[in-house]
């Protein structure tokens, strides 16, 4: 026979075999085999017929079960996005309280701040979050939902936040720090003596006054920032911080620190405040140097 006909013959024989095993034929074949012996307990259920008759998620295939479980696990990982809680935002502003405490301490008020539930301090909050388990967000209402953020809205929000920051800096630097440092560095000159504010002009009180001013201005800044975030329904830190995005990729349970994201968010918030304070301080020191230089000339 020619090569082509041999190939064709093989193909036809294959089709005949498949036909005989298909459409219930496989089960009948097994029944035929088992039927020839009495009291046979062997199954006549054909693997071909059972696979073709039962729907895909039959529950009998352990591979299907395991892939289903994997799907559920992936869905859980997605859903376990830490809620965008601003632990300092929903309740009273802890930063304001903290600076108030710092200011009190500077003024020699040794009385410890009353760590009541109305004025939670940073350390109490940290302790709370350490004592919490994997579900710290229960009971704390999230100001911001988990809805996806529109890119245009986020951009507009960032522009607003940057504007706010710029105005704050301009106001602080040019309407307070610059004149204050100038007046401090010119204490003693008749033209600039202000008798009614000796306390303010006293150089030894510089740090106290500067810190108090910073506390007030930063509090105002954060209040304005919060109102902007509320109006846009966006948390600035959560939306823009690369560190938080990286941390959110860490699966829960991988790092043995409960509420890792919340802690890092809080730390970043405090760092934001501190960095602004340090920047203003650096500006004040710079101005002091410049004014001293010009006075010396």
């Amino acid at each position: 026979m020619s090569e082509i006909s041999e190939t064709e013959k093989r193909r036809l024989l294959r089709e005949r075999r498949q036909q005989k095993f298909g459409k219930g034929g496989a089960t009948s074949r097994l029944a035929k085999i088992t039927g020839q012996t009495e009291n046979s307990f062997l199954s006549t259920e054909s693997p071909i017929d059972s696979k073709s008759s039962t729907p895909e998620p039959s529950g009998r295939n352990s591979n299907e079960d395991s892939t289903k479980q994997m799907d559920e696990l992936l869905a859980q990982i997605h859903q376990q996005q830490p809620k965008k809680t601003d632990q300092g935002g929903a309740a009273k502003n802890p930063e304001l309280d903290l600076f108030a405490q710092l200011a009190k301490m500077q003024q020699g008020d040794a009385s410890a701040p009353t760590a009541t539930s109305e004025t939670p301090d940073i350390f109490a909050q940290l302790l709370k979050s350490v004592q919490m388990d994997q579900q710290p967000q229960q009971g704390i209402e999230s100001v911001f939902g988990n809805q996806p953020i529109d890119a245009a809205v986020l951009e507009a929000h960032n522009v607003a936040v940057n504007k706010l920051k710029a105005y704050t800096i301009v106001v602080k630097w040019f309407f307070f720090i610059l004149p204050y440092v100038y007046y401090i560095s010119h204490t003693g000159r008749e033209a600039f003596q202000l008798t009614t504010v000796d306390f303010v002009m006293n150089r030894s009180n510089f740090f106290t006054i500067f810190t108090s001013f910073e506390v007030v201005t930063l509090s105002v800044y954060y209040q304005l920032l919060m109102s902007a975030e509320k109006s846009h329904n966006i948390n600035t830190l959560n939306s823009n911080s690369k560190i938080l995005k990286l941390v959110s990729m860490v699966p829960p349970g991988l790092v043995p620190i409960p509420n890792l994201r919340g802690k890092i968010s809080q730390a970043l918030q405090y760092w934001d405040v501190l960095s602004m304070y340090l920047t203003d301080m650096a500006f004040a020191i710079l101005l002091t140097g410049i004014f001293q230089y010009y006075h010396a000339m």
Partner: peptide, 23 residues
């Protein structure tokens, strides 16, 4: 023998369900 024949038939049917050629 009976059991061998039965198991051979089941084997062939399993293989066909995996799209493996048995001839």
């Amino acid at each position: 023998e009976f059991l061998s024949l039965y198991e051979t038939e089941r084997l062939i049917q399993e293989l066909m369900s995996y799209d493996m050629d048995v001839n």
